[in-house]
């Protein structure tokens, strides 16, 4: 069982959910997610769980954290839950980012709520040779993330669509500005699919390896319903499930829709 320690607004419509757990089947890895039942007291509305990638994890404190934006009925209900509320979660689920390769100069590119899984990733990479490029609508949406990433001591670049930070524009444009003079050996990215498409295209063109985490409408989160099937570029053309083989895929592994 999980219990809410904190559920607070850390940006406009953006919430930080901190949970305490009794036990977990295994240590959650960056890029994995939990499927949270948001309906309370046996209600069937909404029926499906909501998948959230792990923002942070602390084994010593038995804490797992998520960052979410209130976008619909499910996240609205979630945002109204108070501390001490018990929650029903399944997880950790899905395939994580790979951490153990010798990756040299690493870039993390996150857009919007796609920033969330990159924080735990950045923390676990434990490498000083990482540069983080984040973008969101405005400064207010980024403030919380800025503070957290600064705490990790990584090189941080910020962009907003509505106002000028380092640039006025997207995380993608910000990253592209740096790409020529500072080519990474490996890239991790999460955010809007259009951004993923562009990052993937640039990396494949320049022979840069990397991984992306996609967001796909899920049903079960455990691989039984095949709602989140992704077309692949593999020869056998077998689909892959975002909830089991993903949500993290290698660049060029699945077909993205721009």
């Amino acid at each position: 069982m999980f219990k809410i320690i904190a559920n607070r607004e850390v940006g406009p419509g953006i919430f930080q959910l901190v949970l305490n757990y009794d036990q977990l089947p295994q240590k959650p890895e960056p890029g994995q997610f939990f499927n949270i039942k948001v309906s309370q007291s046996g209600s069937d509305d909404p029926l499906l769980r909501r998948p959230f990638s792990i923002f942070d994890f602390d084994a010593a404190e038995k804490k797992v954290e998520f960052i979410y934006r209130v976008v619909g009925k499910g996240t609205k209900i979630l945002s109204e839950l108070e501390a001490e509320t018990e929650l029903d979660l399944l997880g950790p689920l899905g395939s994580p980012f790979s951490l153990n390769k010798n990756k040299g100069n690493v870039h993390l590119i996150g857009g919007g709520m796609g920033i969330a899984p990159l924080y735990y990733l950045s923390k676990e990479l434990k490498s000083s040779n990482q540069k983080v490029y984040l973008g969101a609508a405005n400064k207010a949406e980024l403030e919380f993330f800025e503070e957290k990433f600064k705490g990790l001591g990584v090189e941080l670049h910020l962009a907003a669509m509505e106002e000028k930070l380092e640039i006025k524009g997207s995380a993608l444009v910000l990253w592209l500005n740096y790409l020529e003079k500072n080519t990474p050996d490996y890239v991790y990215t999460c955010g809007p699919e259009k951004m993923l498409v562009a990052v993937e295209r640039e990396c494949l063109k320049n022979n840069i390896g990397g991984e992306l985490s996609i967001e796909k409408r899920m049903g079960c989160g455990i691989g039984v319903c095949l709602s989140c099937s992704c077309e692949t570029k593999a020869e056998d053309q077998k689909n892959k499930r975002a909830c089991v083989e993903g949500p993290v895929f290698g660049l060029g592994e699945v077909v993205l829709s721009a």
Binding site: D44, L47, L48, R217, G219, C225, L226, C228, S229
Partner: peptide, 20 residues
């Protein structure tokens, strides 16, 4: 069969609509 295009699932009150 590779199935239908996504989205393949939609939610409604107390139900889901699938087109796997």
């Amino acid at each position: 069969q590779s199935g239908n295009q996504t989205p393949r699932i939609a939610e409604t009150s107390a139900g889901i609509i699938n087109s796997i």
